[in-house]
């Protein structure tokens, strides 16, 4: 890996995070916002793996494992909340949850 390709991979991971951030901000459907969060988490994981490969350090992959665990916990809780709330609110519009009341 040269310095240039390292920089390019880091820019790519930032772009992945920004795409996910855009999805969370622009979409109204709760399920697609959760999918966009997954995209946003993919950016940092690429950055950690790239930095780990650049410095030949296992810490990058270890942080990726932590991101994986975070994503699994987030998806489990997020989808359980979604299934719970769509009985009382409109799942295609996150604004219908803004008052947090039934």
């Amino acid at each position: 890996m040269t310095e240039d390709s390292f920089t390019a991979l880091m820019l790519l991971s930032t772009a992945l995070f920004v795409v996910g951030l855009f999805g969370v901000l622009a979409r109204r459907s709760i399920l697609i916002q959760l999918l966009s969060l997954e995209v946003a988490l993919a950016g940092p994981s690429l950055a950690f793996i790239t930095a780990g490969a650049r410095h030949a350090d296992a810490g990058g992959q270890a942080m990726f494992v932590m991101i994986l665990i975070l994503a699994a916990a987030e998806v489990a809780l997020g989808l359980a909340l979604y299934l719970r709330l769509r009985r009382t609110a409109d799942g295609t519009d996150s604004d219908s949850l803004s008052s947090l009341r039934h």
């Binding site: 890996m1 040269t2 310095e3 490969a53 650049r54 410095h55 350090d57 992959q61």
Partner: peptide
């Protein structure tokens, strides 16, 4: 040094 290779598989 932008051309020097670096890094290794983990």
């Amino acid at each position: 040094d932008t051309a020097a290779p670096m890094g290794a598989a983990v």
